[in-house]
């Protein structure tokens, strides 16, 4: 199955399950969880079911394109369902069958992994799903978002698409993945990996980034006072990505790191508070 077919198949599978099919959010983010559909969706008390592919950036994971398994830009496929159906594990496993993984022929495990995102103050219990020893998905029952206990409980499913595709296509290097029948993943992304690794690790101007972080933080606060929660959240995303870049540049010490994360988490809490009072206050 080609990479693009993998996305299409998962999209089709989940829209048949009744999910709203969303498009990737148009901003840099470290994981699909940061998509507003997940952040606000899980926070809200209203039912949600959405699915989307999301390009993710983790500047620190760049390896100049040389590591066969690690990329600083990659794709997640994300599903959020609330409340989670009783047979959600089976529904998930059937999605694997849909992309050609026969459950009967594999060793599928749900391995304890308690997920936590300190930057947005979210945590949940769940698993990483192992396919023959390889982690292919993250499966989480959200308990808190932005420090708020959430209810009803959302189930978050995240597929690591490159790994999954490498498994299905039986290749040992992301560069050899077939994007489709005439294009390889590496043709599309190898040069970008090289350039972005250089940018993330060396070229990014740190003084600019420090300024940007502070400006985005300020802007986020200002928008909260104007009760514009979605634009405020966008600025939080900017903060988060700027911080990730600074970290890749190696200019943030361990002590400072905790302080930066705490600053973003505080923003998340403020955005969430504004969101809840604006859209959910009647409950």
């Amino acid at each position: 199955m080609n990479f693009q077919d993998l996305i299409l198949t998962l999209q089709n599978y989940w829209l048949e399950q009744g999910c709203n099919l969303m498009q990737p959010y148009d901003m840099e983010m470290g994981a699909g969880t940061f998509h507003p559909s997940t952040f606000f969706g899980a926070l809200s008390a209203k039912p949600v079911s959405v699915a989307y592919a999301q390009p993710c950036r983790r500047p620190k994971d760049g390896r100049y394109g040389e590591n066969p398994n690690r990329l600083q830009h990659y794709y997640q496929f994300q599903v959020i369902i609330k409340p989670g159906p009783n047979n959600i594990q089976d529904i998930y496993l059937k999605s694997l069958e849909a992309i050609g993984i026969e459950i009967a022929k594999h060793d599928i495990r749900f391995v304890e992994d308690d997920w936590e995102s300190p930057t947005i103050g979210a945590w949940g219990l769940g698993w990483e799903v192992w396919l023959d020893g390889m982690e292919i998905s993250q499966f989480t029952y959200f308990q808190q978002v932005a420090g708020f206990d959430v209810f009803p409980i959302s189930v978050e499913l995240t597929y690591g698409l490159e790994r999954l595709a490498m498994y299905i296509q039986d290749v040992d290097d992301y560069r050899k993945l077939r994007w489709n029948n005439h294009t390889l993943y590496g043709e599309l992304f190898f040069p970008r990996e090289v350039e972005y690794s250089e940018y993330n690790f060396n070229a990014a101007e740190t003084s600019l980034l420090f300024d940007l972080f502070a400006d985005y933080e300020k802007e986020c606060r200002k928008l909260i006072t104007k009760n514009l929660v979605y634009p405020a959240y966008d600025n939080l995303l900017h903060c988060s990505h700027t911080f990730n870049l600074l970290e890749a540049r190696g200019v943030i010490s361990v002590t400072e790191r905790a302080a930066y994360i705490s600053r973003i988490r505080t923003l998340a809490k403020e955005v969430a508070t504004a969101y809840l009072s604006k859209y959910e206050s009647q409950k």
Binding site: H106, G133, M134
Partner: peptide, 23 residues
Amino acid sequence: NGDPVYSDIIRKGYEKVVDARLA
């Protein structure tokens, strides 16, 4: 934890993961 009949398929996965981690 899988079907013993398909241990060969399953093995390939385990080997891949260990190789990737060691890489």
